[in-house]
Amino acid sequence: QLRFETNGEEQAKKVLEEAKKHNLEAHVTIENGKWVVHVK
């Protein structure tokens, strides 16, 4: 499982879109005010 700390909602959405293009499972959590994308 990969973990990407992003700078906010915009970047998190871009990472999610990329993951979906590659048929990867991804979800976002907010940790300590940071948007974190988890990709399987």
Rank of each mutant, 00 (worst) to 15 (best):
V28H: 02
V37I: 08
A12F: 03
E17N: 11
E18D: 10
H38D: 03
I30Y: 14
G33Q: 03
H38L: 13
Q1A: 14
E17V: 08
L16E: 04
H38G: 01
A26E: 01
Q1F: 15
N23H: 12
V15A: 07
A12L: 07
V28R: 01
Q1Y: 15
V39Q: 00
E10P: 05
K34G: 03
K14Y: 13
V15C: 13
E25G: 05
H22L: 14
K21V: 07
L16V: 12
E18Q: 13
K20F: 13
K13P: 00
V28D: 00
T6R: 05
K14A: 13
K20E: 08
V39G: 01
V28W: 04
Q1L: 14
E18K: 11
R3N: 04
K14W: 14
V36T: 04
Q1V: 15
V15L: 15
E18L: 15
Q1G: 14
W35E: 01
K13V: 09
E25S: 11
K13L: 14
T29I: 10
T29V: 13
V39S: 01
L16C: 13
I30Q: 10
H22Y: 14
V28F: 06
L24H: 06
E18R: 12
E17H: 08
H22P: 00
T6L: 14
H38F: 14
T29W: 06
G33K: 02
V28P: 01
V36R: 01
V36H: 02
E9K: 08
N7E: 14
T6W: 04
V28A: 06
F4V: 11
G8I: 12
K21H: 08
K14D: 05
E9P: 15
I30F: 14
E9V: 08
A19I: 11
E31T: 05
Q11Y: 09
V36A: 01
R3C: 11
E18I: 15
W35T: 02
K40E: 13
G33P: 00
I30K: 09
E10W: 12
L2D: 04
K40Y: 15
N23Y: 09
V15G: 02
K20M: 12
K20V: 10
G8V: 11
E17M: 13
V36I: 14
F4L: 08
K13H: 11
V28K: 02
E31W: 06
K40I: 14
K13D: 05
E18F: 15
K13N: 13
T6V: 15
V37Y: 01
Q11G: 10
V28L: 11
T6S: 05
E17Y: 10
N7K: 11
E17K: 10
E31R: 05
F4M: 04
Q11S: 10
E10S: 09
V36W: 05
V28G: 02
K21T: 06
T29L: 07
K34D: 02
H22Q: 12
R3Q: 04
E18G: 07
E25Y: 12
T6H: 04
H38Q: 05
E18Y: 15
Q11P: 04
E10I: 08
N7L: 12
I30V: 12
N23F: 10
V37W: 01
E18N: 12
E17D: 12
V37P: 00
L2V: 11
N32V: 02
N23I: 02
E31K: 04
T29Q: 07
A19Q: 03
E31L: 06
K34R: 11
L24F: 10
Q1C: 15
K13E: 07
V15D: 02
V28Q: 02
K40F: 15
A19K: 03
E31V: 08
L2H: 10
A19W: 10
L24I: 07
G33S: 04
V37L: 02
H22A: 11
H22M: 13
L2E: 05
V36N: 00
K34L: 11
Q1W: 15
E9D: 05
N32F: 07
G8W: 10
N7F: 12
R3G: 03
E25H: 11
A26M: 03
K13R: 13
N23E: 06
N7Y: 12
E17S: 10
K21Q: 09
K13G: 07
K20Y: 12
A12H: 01
